[in-house]
């Protein structure tokens, strides 16, 4: 049983890591507490459902469409709200409140259009793979393989590509970034597009396995934020460590104890980290006055 729990936890952890990376690249660079990410998450899942169930496209095409639409919505949030606010010299907290407004608009528009009921994408019971005592269903297999490939791709892009370098430079020091002649707005555009895509992929993978409803976004986002913090704020690859740790912990708690207490346990872990090691498992050590 232990092996089964750990495997389930790792698969969930990959999902958390993906969403955490989507949140973290916005948070680290723009310092916006991007709560609207929960709205994007729900939006992506509904677009995936819309194109694969009522319209009847193949899951892969529906997924791609959902990713592209979510990227545009993410960019719309940036161009329509965050960027004008930044040019008005608004503070971080103002951007956060505007983000809460965005979240309310997105989630309730979806609830209005599609109803408040839960929906499922994959109706037939799925095949599963058995290795020894461990059982993995085929949606889980898709989740873990696609998830891991995407995460590795993002991490390599961030480390090796020019825009990855610019992204890290922007998160380090925006004024110096401007002084050296780079355009922060252009980099932010890329950041929000990227973040939208990552959030959509994470959402589609989960929705395919577990179904969707308009209120699911906040739950997943909160777990992803926990993953981001216990991994360590300021870097991106740490989200992976945090996500996997959190996933395994939650699976063990729900396996041996009770599923309803898994949130409490993960937040107690978060509090312990905040009190004892605020930089997370592998984050940047900062000292603020």
């Amino acid at each position: 049983m232990l092996a089964q729990f750990i495997i389930n936890g790792l698969i969930m952890g990959v999902n958390y890591s993906l969403l955490a990376i989507g949140f973290a690249i916005v948070y680290n660079t723009t310092k916006i507490f991007h709560i609207a990410a929960a709205g994007l998450y729900v939006f992506a899942a509904y677009m995936f459902w819309l194109f694969s169930v009522p319209i009847g496209l193949h899951s892969i095409i529906a997924g791609l469409v959902s990713v592209i639409l979510t990227m545009s919505l993410s960019l719309l949030c940036e161009i329509g709200v965050y960027r004008p606010l930044k040019h008005l010299k608004a503070t971080n907290n103002v951007a956060m409140i505007a983000s809460i407004g965005l979240l309310a608009i997105i989630i309730n528009s979806i609830a209005m259009l599609f109803g408040n009921n839960a929906k499922v994408i994959q109706t037939v019971s799925s095949e599963s793979l058995t290795i020894g005592e461990i059982l993995i269903t085929s949606p889980q297999l898709i989740q873990v393989s696609v998830g891991v490939i995407i995460i590795l791709l993002i991490l390599i892009l961030l480390k090796r590509s020019g825009w990855g370098l610019r992204l890290r430079a922007l998160s380090d020091d925006e004024i110096l970034f401007k002084v050296l002649g780079y355009n922060p707005d252009a980099t932010r555009t890329v950041i929000f597009l990227m973040s939208g895509a990552i959030i959509a992929i994470s959402s589609d993978l989960t929705a395919y396995d577990l179904g969707l409803d308009p209120q699911m976004g906040m739950n997943f986002l909160v777990s992803a934020i926990v993953a981001m913090i216990i991994g360590g704020i300021g870097k991106t690859w740490t989200c992976l460590i945090g996500g996997l740790t959190l996933g395994v912990l939650q699976a063990l708690v729900s396996g041996y104890f009770s599923a309803s207490w898994q949130n409490a346990v993960s937040f107690i872990l978060l509090l312990l980290f905040l009190f004892l090691k605020p930089s997370g498992i592998a984050g940047i050590k900062t000292r603020t006055v």
Partner: peptide, 30 residues
């Protein structure tokens, strides 16, 4: 749902037009 949407919109509009709030004296600080 529509009430919530209007509420969300008004949040954004207030943040654009009066970041210090309707009757506030200070902008939320950094």
């Amino acid at each position: 749902d529509l009430r919530q949407i209007i509420y969300g919109l008004s949040l954004i509009i207030v943040m654009f037009c009066r970041p210090q709030g309707i009757a506030g004296v200070l902008q939320p600080s950094n």
